[in-house]
Design a protein around this nucleic acid. Structure first.
Lengths: 93, 93
DNA sequence: ACAACATATTGACAAATTTCGATATATCAA
DNA sequence: TTGATATATCGAAATTTGTCAATATGTTGT
């Protein structure tokens, strides 16, 4: 098990603003500008958070002209679920 | 949804030493002294990490004489799994 | 009561993270 | 090409987190 990678995955979910971003993206793909409207943070800060979420594969981004569209990505969520599942199976021994 | 509580839950999993602790506890209940042997950290640091894991309900502690026994707790894991499940169900809309 | 041991708490410091303003890059429209 | 707009990157300040040494608390055995 890769502690560093797993820690980074959970770090990505360990911030209130990023959780709120995930919450918004649950509704489907959104433009960065829409996310910026919804959150009380600056544009560079949003860009930073999106990079963290994308690096963790929790979100994927798509560029269309000058806009960036973000949506939830399965890979990161699957990794997190797999980790939690493995905690559970051996629990209680 | 309580962003602060959820962020704290994932924060608890967002540290390499705490992930290693969870890994050891997968094998079953362990004394704090056993954990201390396994990790390259000081006793106060271990105590601090155990508090964070307990607060997140990922681990529960039991005092027996002068020893503390820790084991994985279902509640926190269930909360994390529930959160991830809710991300998935509405994904792709 | 006292000494030895296990764990928790405190206080301080270093490292990591979040944040923003300023600036750079890229795209579109006139 | 020039100006407007969307996003990314840089650099610095503020906050949070991880860490340890010192100390406190609580338990056991003598």
């Amino acid at each position: 098990m890769d502690y560093k990678k797993t820690a980074n995955l959970f770090k990505a979910l360990a911030d209130e603003n990023r959780l709120q971003i995930m919450e918004i993206l649950k509704d489907g793909e959104k433009c960065a500008c829409k996310l910026l409207e919804a959150l009380q943070i600056s544009q560079p800060t949003l860009s930073h958070h999106m990079k963290i979420l994308c690096d963790a594969e929790l979100v994927s981004g798509r560029k269309e002209g000058k806009w960036m569209y973000y949506s939830i990505s399965k890979a990161g969520i699957k990794n997190a679920k797999t980790y939690l599942k493995e905690l559970k199976i051996s629990e209680g021994k």
